Amino acid sequence: MTITVHPEAKALIFDLDGTLSNSLPVHLETWKIVAKKYNFDFDPNIIHEMTGRPTIEFAKRIVEQYKVDEQPEILVRMKQQAFWDAAHLLEPIEEVISIVKSYHGKLPMSVGTGASGKSAEVQLKELGIRDYFDFVISADDVQKHKPHPETFVKCAELMGVEPQLCQVFEDGDLGISAAKEAGMFVTDVREHIVYGDWELTANK
């Protein structure tokens, strides 16, 4: 089954990690770098459960779960730097990016992500797709993160389109909940694409 655009959609909003960018394996490996330094075994299910949340919340979860004697902000800096250094390993999710390219210039498009502004820009530029989007709303741009709908509502506002006429493409449960709460059309891209062995491991 191919990914389609809803016939009533007047604007498109895309999550980033796991939707446009097959970044989850890179996130996993860079969290393992942090885990090695602080002597704990990182559980990949944390990524699966918290996809869409800002990195600081991952770090707080890790400090609490693994009793790490470090400030979460320090873990965030280490993790983000490792991720930026590994950006060349990112791969595009072509099934979703084909939608972006097909509708560029036809419908307004934006990215609504739980990643930091810098991480979002690094990924979009590395994948060569930054110029396809009118707006990028990151974790830095909102007060309430997914599953709160603020990220997607802000995208709609900037594009000048009513929320109920926006279609969101997402891979995370939290983001899907946010899009539904905003009253938007929602496409769960996990039903249409194959991520490879990582997804099988993360969902066990």
Rank of each mutant, 00 (worst) to 15 (best):
K67S: 14
L127N: 09
M50T: 03
E95K: 10
K125R: 12
V168I: 07
H148T: 02
S119A: 06
F83R: 04
E181T: 01
K154S: 15
Q65E: 15
P149M: 03
R77K: 04
A120T: 15
K146Q: 08
I46P: 07
H148W: 01
L124H: 00
V63C: 10
E121S: 11
R130V: 07
K180Y: 13
E64P: 15
S116L: 07
P44Q: 11
T51Y: 10
G105Q: 01
G128Q: 03
A87I: 13
K154A: 14
E150L: 08
M50Q: 02
F40M: 14
V122Y: 08
T55H: 10
S138H: 00
E126Y: 12
K144H: 04
A35V: 02
A156E: 13
V161D: 07
A87M: 07
Q164E: 15
F152P: 00
V96P: 06
D131N: 12
Q71D: 14
S177I: 11
D171N: 12
L174W: 11
G172Y: 00
K37E: 14
D131V: 10
V142S: 08
R130D: 05
K36A: 06
P44Y: 12
G172N: 02
G112P: 04
V100I: 06
W84M: 00
K118S: 11
F40T: 13
S119G: 07
D41L: 09
S177C: 08
G172T: 02
I47H: 01
A86N: 05
Q65M: 15
H88M: 15
D43M: 10
K60G: 05
P72R: 13
E91N: 04
N45L: 12
Q65N: 13
A120Q: 13
H145M: 03
L158R: 10
L89P: 01
H104W: 00
K125E: 14
K101F: 00
S98K: 11
M109S: 04
I62T: 05
P54R: 15
L174C: 10
K36L: 06
G160A: 05
P44H: 12
M50G: 02
V96G: 03
P163L: 10
H148R: 01
